[in-house]
Simulated scan of single mutants.
Amino acid sequence: MFLYQKNEYFVQIAHGMEELGEAELAELGATNLRRAYRGIAITADRATAYRICYRSRLCSRVLAPLLRASFTDEKDLHRIAVDLPWHQLFSKNRTFAVTFNVGNSVIRNGKYASLLIKDAICDRFRMETGSRPSVDTENPQVVINLFIDGPEAVLSADFSGEALHKRGYRSHGGGPAPMQETLAAAIIRHTGFDGTRPLWDPMCGSGTLVAEALMQAAEIPAGYLRSEFGFFSYSDFDAGAWKRVKAEADACIRPVVPGMILGSDLDARAVGFARKNLSRLPFAPVVQLRIADFRNMPDFRDGLIVANPPYGVRLGSDHEVRQLYTDFGDFLKLHCPGTTAWVYLGDRSRIGDLHLKPTRKIPLPSGDLDGRLLRLDMYEKLTQE
């Protein structure tokens, strides 16, 4: 029996999103949540694992552990892997690949360690069936993950397939430095947006924040546009449980009042990408998009603003960046009474350029960027100064 068949799973989630991720996982039915390196270990039945893959807006991958074991050297690791009944996990007609994360180990080369696992899988298949499955590193049907920390190795089956942040609405070549969907979803979750209070992104770019706002308010499952998940390819895939999970989630999809989600950007090309991306989602016409400079927009009252202003790697000179931030801070202060603004800064050194005092500063890294999500409350009295 594999470990996941005892309801053990591991959910990968970006650093900084653990608290939000724990809340979401509990909502989706996971129990016994334990934070670990690069994610959260959970207890979940098969339907809950499918539900997380389909509905989680914050998680990157769902791994189904197969084996956890200590090893002494490369031969020992190969032996441990050969002992697993891989032929019971997936068919030899499926393609597969091995991913890895190796640290503090006697095997220092992660790629070499993954090749040992690949060879072990093929060896066991030959022993049991007389032939072996093919390797496909570009688009494998089955992904096996190897995690090594010191003398311990964990082998897992990837239930996600492609990373879960790949919702399916984003166009290829969708503008410069688009925000990752899971980060955008975390920002929207922090706002508490539910479609009853207007939300505006005045620098929407290719529309990731407004797309995630629409998906959250309309309760569109994060995986709604995906046709494939990794768990489809395993021999114990429960088609009935998956059908029930999907039907249950899809039945919750609800319309959003037109005009409650707005996006604008001075870059016409970016707004074009935003329109194209949103067109793939249900209720896309309710989102109002405009080509406009926020400095020329009318007052925005009693709503929510979300923004990811351009920073060093996305814009020109330092002077241009500083002036943009100052102008945006002035706009919020003078033209957005009663509004709560949630502003994500990939470069936290730019916080002072807004000339506003945040109510909250939430660490929210993005790749190599030590970003901050700022909450800025614009009170009515500020417009009278």
Rank of each mutant, 00 (worst) to 15 (best):
H319A: 15
G352C: 00
G329N: 11
F331V: 10
R301Y: 13
A292G: 08
R314M: 01
Q323M: 08
T359G: 13
D330P: 03
L315E: 01
V321A: 10
V343T: 13
P310H: 00
P298S: 09
R290F: 13
G303W: 04
P310L: 00
T339K: 11
N296K: 14
R290S: 15
V343N: 08
I351N: 03
L334H: 07
R314A: 05
F328A: 12
D302G: 15
G312N: 02
D318F: 10
L324G: 00
K361E: 08
H335G: 11
G303M: 14
V306H: 06
I305S: 07
D330A: 12
L354E: 02
L304N: 12
V343E: 03
R322N: 07
K361V: 08
H319E: 13
F300I: 07
P358E: 01
R290M: 15
V321Y: 01
A341S: 12
P309C: 05
H335F: 14
L334D: 02
F328S: 12
Y311A: 13
L364T: 01
Y344E: 06
D347M: 00
R350A: 11
P310T: 03
T326E: 05
T339L: 15
R301M: 12
G352A: 07
E320K: 10
S366V: 03
H355P: 02
D318L: 12
I351G: 02
G338T: 11
P365G: 02
V306P: 07
G367S: 03
I305Y: 05
S317F: 15
D318P: 07
V343M: 09
L324R: 03
I351D: 03
